[in-house]
Design a protein around this nucleic acid. Structure first.
Lengths: 145, 145
DNA sequence: AAATAATAGTTCGCATAGAAACTATTTCCA
DNA sequence: TGGAAATAGTTTCTATGCGAACTATTATTT
């Protein structure tokens, strides 16, 4: 039995690899990765968020978020500030530069998503999104962040 | 606008992270990762395959496959053999040990997939698999392997 | 209040991932 | 046939991604 063909888990993993690669390729010009964009996006309209909360939003463990914050801070897209009410917490603040990059990349995100409407009907797309959201909600909380 | 919530691309990526983590956790006991299992699985019933063909099956670039082959060979799950008719080609052969590990892990793969039937109805699952396969087929060929 | 547990981040080590540049081989074609 | 183009893998460098162990801080318990 070959599971890469028949297992839904592996199918999702495999498909996601192609998705992320498409996004990474689009973003490369702006010197940012798809995962880094997800961090900036989580901060949009929030002002600032604790690292752990960002991790929950984009499903990444603590060490991964630390590394992402390092690189984003080095490039001036975000700023680390220790919270005053709970000094264990480090909040990530979006800088003006980070906000600008996010705005510049919006059309690319929309384009990649639009590409999907060429492959799937509106109904198929809606159904898939609903199913993925159900799985996502089910998995949420299993994260050691 | 927050795209991690609204973009289908990011939704797939995020969901896949939770899937792969679930699979990795199940496999950790046997000292193998989900991605390494995918390589063994690609070889099951094939005897041997060129590295590049394995890459196409599981959507990974050439350098990633090289690294995977290194680690799998070190652990004795596969063997590298240069092809005699085209000496550029390196074929990966599944060893008895590799076959055994694959067989031992089958129940875990089935269990993770079974878990999904608790979340989605049979129709939803079928629809999602069809959609993912369409996207997958569309993306196939964009790989630099 | 002192000891303990819980929580937020970081660090370390290892396993993916991919772009770019390289070697070795084969194919193509003028 | 001989040189250019294409192909298969590898190497190097950088960026995720996660388990385990660590520090610092806060909450809990007795």
């Amino acid at each position: 039995m070959n599971y890469i063909k028949h297992s839904t888990g592996f199918l999702v993993v495999r498909t996601a690899r192609s998705m992320r690669k498409a996004l990474d390729t689009e973003f490369a010009e702006k010197g940012i990765t798809a995962t880094q964009f997800m961090v900036l996006d989580a901060l949009m309209g929030q002002g600032a968020l604790p690292l752990s909360e960002i991790g929950r939003k984009i499903y990444l463990d603590k060490p991964a978020i630390t590394g992402l914050a390092d690189r984003l801070e080095k490039d001036g897209f975000v700023e680390r500030r220790r919270s005053s009410d709970d000094r264990r917490v480090v909040k990530l603040h979006l800088t003006a530069k980070g906000e600008t990059v996010h705005r510049e990349l919006e059309p690319l995100v929309i384009a990649v998503d639009q590409d999907l409407t060429q492959i799937l009907s509106a109904d198929e797309l809606t159904a898939m999104r609903n199913s993925l959201n159900k799985i996502w909600k089910h998995a949420d909380g299993n994260l050691d962040a």
